[in-house]
Write a protein that binds this DNA or RNA. Structure first.
Lengths: 207, 207, 207, 207
DNA sequence: TATGAATGAGAATTCATTCAT
DNA sequence: TATGAATGAATTCTCATTCAT
């Protein structure tokens, strides 16, 4: 009798919503914000145009949501990887491992965050700036620790973190263009870790 | 007198064409490829829409031309700066100096070249990829030299060059966001140079 | 016991149907036919969209039903007021009193009936025309009576009724815009009655 | 050489703009604001959709403009007619004559003002209220004069003007529905004038 | 009966591009 | 050469209506 809400229906709705967001991430990642059309997204999600507007208020809002969620997921994974280790070399390596994993298994995430639609969507500017800031912070915090422990010589840790973040992004973006990224992953991580440790003049001095 | 026609007419024509390209650089840099409209460009150049189509076949072609020219100018300046020095530290520093100069005095150039979000337009993606490739080469060549001379230990110079390019881009992009970039320029260059030299384990060994 | 089924079920059904029509009157009155959406109506009635289509075949049909019912109620009240009196001045005054009462206590009814802007939807235009016709008739009938009794001089009673109807509508619409319509009601009715009696050159001649 | 602006071009542009506004008046008058589509308008004007947006910013702005202009034209004609006479009966008659002329020869004007899209377009509400106000003023001013000269007994001239305005509108709207309005015009005007003079208890007393 | 997710035709608006002058 | 009016395909978004549950 009547209609039972918050049962299967609820779950199904959430599932569809999620499916549509997945589809949207891929479309946005591939085409960029402006070139991606609502039709592209609903086609990818295999629903009608109206369905899009049932779940999301408009293209821009969806994109910003998506960017936020994606950034949150990405930064969370990175942060957790870094915090799971206690010494700088392992922290950097673990962070890079997490980064590379995402890049390989969810390339759209990286595409969206690094290429996406920056410069296009005004309301995205802040989101993007905030993302860069948090990303840089993830790398900077271990550097500050290391500075405190005298494991790296005095230096502008902020600028170093910017440089590392930029370096990592670029190398991993190139890794993604490789025909078989997975085969290169381990080596890339090792090299980048060494590159980073040398760049900040790390030495396991202390103790 | 191998010089071509070049009377007033030609000069005027070139002047108008140049004005439009100048305007276009700024418009594209500010809004990104898709959000920039032909009307934006001709308004900035103070000509009529029809005039645009007299000089350029279409929007995409203009952008490609523009990107090529801008990349050529930028890479040329960088390359020249690097080649004007003989030892690695100076090469890197000179290159960074050139990069920073352009970033400060022609920020639109840097914005245009680094702006992403041109996904789904093949010809634009190619241009961007080609630019990255050439940029990385500029940094890689001195590294290869240094490798040959034993000034840096064996390493994947290609990957190192990628990392350096990414690091430089990121730091300089942040420098541009600074309220008074010029005041920070010298220090940034010094730091980045040291960062780079450490990263590739440079030592002035030889001779 | 000629009464039909009428158990709880029927009453509940009618209740819901009625709630939706009530809501619809207000929504249509406020926004006009085109701007009012089904969602507006079901939201106001606190039912689901599907429920709307269980009770009504479509938007247009609902509006027509609604308009008919509302017109029927309105005209009925007016007619009854007029017929409850035997002499023209009292008939006009009673009619106006009924009109003003509805306007003040059910402004949506008046809004709905007088709202135009339903051009291009034939069935709605018909309804509106029919309503005007019946309204004019209500005023015209007493005039014809008065003509017969020689209480008003020969005149085109149809045209006079149109004029009176228009005059009454306009003044009452303005009354509704007044901050406190009720306080002005009595005076307005008196004035309008006198206006009308003078306009048709009424004199209590006979007997 | 080059392009000569503000010549034939200018005139042509204005002509086309006017033609489009004419077309729009008719479409809006016939269908009402919401039901009228841009396509309807451009089809009536025999231009492409884009052309509409070259001349007007959007549908709503055009409609409001149109309403304003139309109201200005209508009220101007009425006002002038009324002011061209010195005694009340003639003023009313001349005003009605002008009104009827417009109604017959430019029925769309009357449709737009009286039926148009009231209640639909929020930004139109004020325009419509202002129009009613000015219309009522046109009738009220002669009444005030007559009051001053003792040609009509003390009465609320404002309310009387509202009533007259409403009466005139209604009768003329019905006149327009007549198969051959022109044939009825003279009689209608005469009757309405008498109706009005009686309603306000006019007598040529004074002097 | 009642629900609300899903649909898609249709409306407004933008913008690259053309072409008569 | 230069102009800008004109075009219409493409895009975003709305909303009446359907239907499985």
């Amino acid at each position: 009798m009547a209609y039972r809400s918050s049962d299967k229906t609820r779950r199904k709705k959430d599932a569809k919503r999620t499916a549509m967001m997945q589809a949207a991430v891929h479309v946005f990642a591939e085409k960029g914000y402006h070139a991606a059309t609502i039709r592209d997204i609903v086609t990818a999600a295999d629903v009608a145009i109206g369905t899009f507007y049932f779940y999301f208020p408009d293209k821009e809002t969806l994109f910003v949501h998506l960017y936020e969620e994606t950034a949150h997921f990405f930064l969370g994974a990175l942060q957790q990887a870094v915090l799971s280790r206690r010494v700088l070399p392992e922290q950097i390596q673990a962070g890079l491992q997490a980064y590379v994993n995402i890049a390989i298994y969810e390339p759209a995430v990286v595409q969206l965050l690094l290429v996406g639609g920056v410069g296009s969507v005004p309301s995205l500017m802040e989101q993007h700036a905030a993302f860069r800031e948090r990303l840089i912070n993830i790398w900077q915090r271990p550097l500050n620790e290391a500075l405190l422990h005298g494991q790296i010589p005095p230096q502008n840790s902020r600028r170093a973190a910017e440089a590392l973040a930029g370096a990592f992004d670029e190398v991993i973006l190139h890794l993604l263009n490789h025909p078989d990224p997975a085969s290169e992953a381990a080596e890339t991580i090792t090299e980048l870790t060494r590159f980073a440790l040398r760049a900040i003049a790390y030495s396991e001095s202390s103790k």
